[in-house]
């Protein structure tokens, strides 16, 4: 067996494609960091003046300019920003003087909890709804499920949130209005954020299932007398799961973006709320750090789902 044939074996192909993906990933991360770096240079006028306000002392201004490195040439600032970010040093908040990494660490658990809870809510709604729509294709149940899905996609979460508060907190008094002090505080934010995702997911699950349900092995399962639900649960959903998984990864971006708004609606003390607070306080280093953290999380999750997909699906593994 020559060297060439060895290189063409699937295992090496997989290795090669993983390395290519890793390189592409690295350059995307570099691009993201660069774009976030440039954010501060988009501030109209003198950023230092904007941050300190008109009342700032000249000495303070100079100190801040030094601290942010704004007196250096652009490429040096960029290198410095890269270097610091690489070492996990995101600088200091202009407002509270705290290390930004500390600030982020305080807020991260809340956002993580919200994201996981909404993802669960979304899956719990979308899987039954999408399956129902696929099984009862072309009936009023299908239509109803898709209407719900259209509504769910069209209702912005900053309206759905207040509607839930009106219904569940004010009229029924079941759940707390906002904050994160109560054991049940997470329910309404998760429901708000999860519904929009559920609407999109239900559509995807339905179309993925409809595609799978025409396959031969489904006909075989029918022929041996399995119930429609057993077919969907044991045979169809498993095969539909792969495309749906990638789509969940992609939709996580919408989820994380939506989290910024949902956290503001419910005063949920997460990264999104920190971002909005920092924009209002013109604490731009914190704004940069929040944007960086959220987008890098998104990039990482997508890379992971991408790789898991390649690993799990032999059709892709051997096709490349």
């Amino acid at each position: 067996m020559g060297f060439l044939t060895l290189c063409q074996t699937p295992v090496n192909d997989l290795f090669y494609s993983l390395i290519l993906r890793a390189l592409r990933l690295l350059s995307v991360i570099l691009g993201v960091v660069t774009l976030v770096f440039f954010l501060i240079h988009l501030i109209p006028g003198d950023p230092v003046e904007v941050m300190l306000g008109e009342m700032g002392q000249t000495a303070d201004k100079q100190a801040l300019q030094q601290a942010l490195g704004l007196n250096q040439p652009l490429w040096q600032q960029w290198l410095q920003y890269l270097n610091h970010t690489l070492h996990g040093d995101l600088g200091q908040s202009l407002h509270s003087k705290q290390a930004i990494t500390e600030l982020l660490a305080q807020r991260l658990p809340a956002t993580g909890q919200l994201a996981v809870a909404s993802l669960l809510v979304a899956i719990l709604i979308a899987v039954p709804l999408g399956s129902l729509a696929a099984i009862k294709h072309h009936t009023w149940l299908d239509q109803g499920a898709m209407t719900f899905s259209l509504l769910g996609m069209s209702i912005p979460n900053f309206w759905l949130g207040p509607l839930f508060i009106l219904l569940f907190s004010i009229n029924l008094g079941w759940l707390p209005v906002s904050g994160r002090d109560n054991g049940l505080s997470w329910v309404l934010p998760a429901l708000t954020l999860g519904t929009a995702l559920a609407a999109i997911l239900a559509r995807m699950i339905r179309s993925a299932l409809l595609e799978v349900l025409h396959e031969d092995y489904i006909r075989t399962a029918r022929a041996k007398g399995l119930s429609e639900w057993a077919i969907v649960w044991h045979h169809a959903l498993r095969n539909a799961a792969l495309p749906v998984m990638t789509l969940i990864g992609l939709q996580l971006g919408t989820l994380l973006g939506g989290a910024v708004i949902t956290e503001t609606v419910f005063s949920w003390p997460g990264i999104g709320q920190l971002l909005i607070e920092s924009i209002q306080k013109r604490d731009y280093p914190v704004v940069q750090a929040c944007v960086l953290l959220i987008s890098l999380t998104y990039v990482a999750v997508n890379a992971l789902t991408d790789m898991a997909y390649v690993w799990l699906d032999p059709r892709i593994r051997f096709a490349e």
Binding site: R24, V28, I29, G31, V32, L35, L39, I40, L42, I43, L252, G253, T254, L255, L256, G257, G258, V260, I261, L275, I276, I279, Y284, V287, V291, I294, S295, Y298, V299
Partner: peptide, 18 residues
Amino acid sequence: DIFLAFPSILLAIALAGV
């Protein structure tokens, strides 16, 4: 690809905020 790495509304929020 780099632009797509930002969750859709996030970059708009950051830009509008800055």
